[in-house]
Write a protein that binds this DNA or RNA. Structure first.
Length: 254
DNA sequence: ATGGCATAATCCTTATGA
């Protein structure tokens, strides 16, 4: 089984890249973030023609998440239960017996801001839900998405000067997700130096490999031993009009 | 010290992103 995640930064603009990537990689499930479109604009027919069913939670201008899968995703659920939120940032569904949770974590803007407080509140609600309910109901669970957190020093280009995405409270919140019984699938395997998943559009950041690893796939204990490979695919980032994020893919022996 | 690019929305400027 192959599960992947990709922040597409507008599904409308990136649909050709997504269709090409699906054709080339044939994942069983692909989690998308930052659709930036309402549900009525979702390209359901184009994806079905490409062999993919979808569940999605869209909104105008910002946010928006979807799970694409070769088989119809089962029991879709939108949002974090018991966390009232106008922003469409999470959708979960079962694909091939795995509970796939697709999430677009808040950016946080800058420590001390309202958006930063919202980010930490959102992370707290996510951890509570995973620990208290989701993992009990679904022992085989994968949490995939744009976490907007670079957990380790190795996940950050040395020239990164900002506090956001690397601040101690954000990293503590990431660790709390691991403490729920999840593992960062990427770090189960040997990886190249300076492996990132996002590069700023400015400053020739991609060419200079000035990036961050903020897109992750965490898997539950029950899935850990089934992991066979996990990698960032930098190819779509080099195309014309790319997303600023690259897809991350996990292969499982299931 | 700042912005540098991209997207969407209202529309030629602004908010947001990471």
């Amino acid at each position: 089984m192959k599960i992947a995640t990709w922040n597409v930064n507008s599904l409308k603009v990136r649909l050709p890249h997504v269709l090409d990537w699906l054709a080339a990689n044939r994942p069983d499930a692909l989690c998308l973030q930052e659709l930036k479109m309402e549900d009525k604009a979702f390209p359901r027919d184009e994806l079905l023609a490409a062999g993919y069913h979808a569940v999605f939670a869209g909104q105008k201008t910002y946010n928006g998440v979807a799970i694409l899968a070769r088989k119809p995703p089962q029991e879709p659920q939108r949002g974090i239960p018991a966390f009232a939120d106008e922003q469409q940032r999470l959708i979960a569904a079962t694909v091939d017996g795995v509970r796939v949770v697709c999430a677009y974590f808040p950016n946080g803007q800058t420590p001390g801001s309202d958006k930063y407080a919202y980010k930490l509140d959102w992370l707290d609600a996510l951890a509570r839900w995973l620990d208290g309910e989701a993992l009990r109901a679904h022992p085989r669970l994968a949490l995939a998405g744009d976490f907007n957190i670079a957990p380790l020093t190795a996940d950050v280009h040395p020239d990164w000067r900002e506090e956001i995405l690397v601040s101690p409270p954000e990293r503590a919140a990431f660790q709390r997700l691991l403490d729920c019984g999840l593992v960062d699938a990427f770090r189960l395997f040997e990886q190249p130096e300076r492996a990132f998943s996002w590069w700023d559009y400015r400053l020739n950041a991609f060419r200079r490999n000035f990036g961050l690893r903020i897109d992750h796939i965490l898997v539950s204990t029950a899935l850990r031993d089934a992991c066979r490979a996990c990698a960032v695919d930098k190819t779509p980032r080099a195309l014309e009009r790319p997303s600023d994020h690259a897809p991350v893919a996990l292969e499982l022996a299931l």
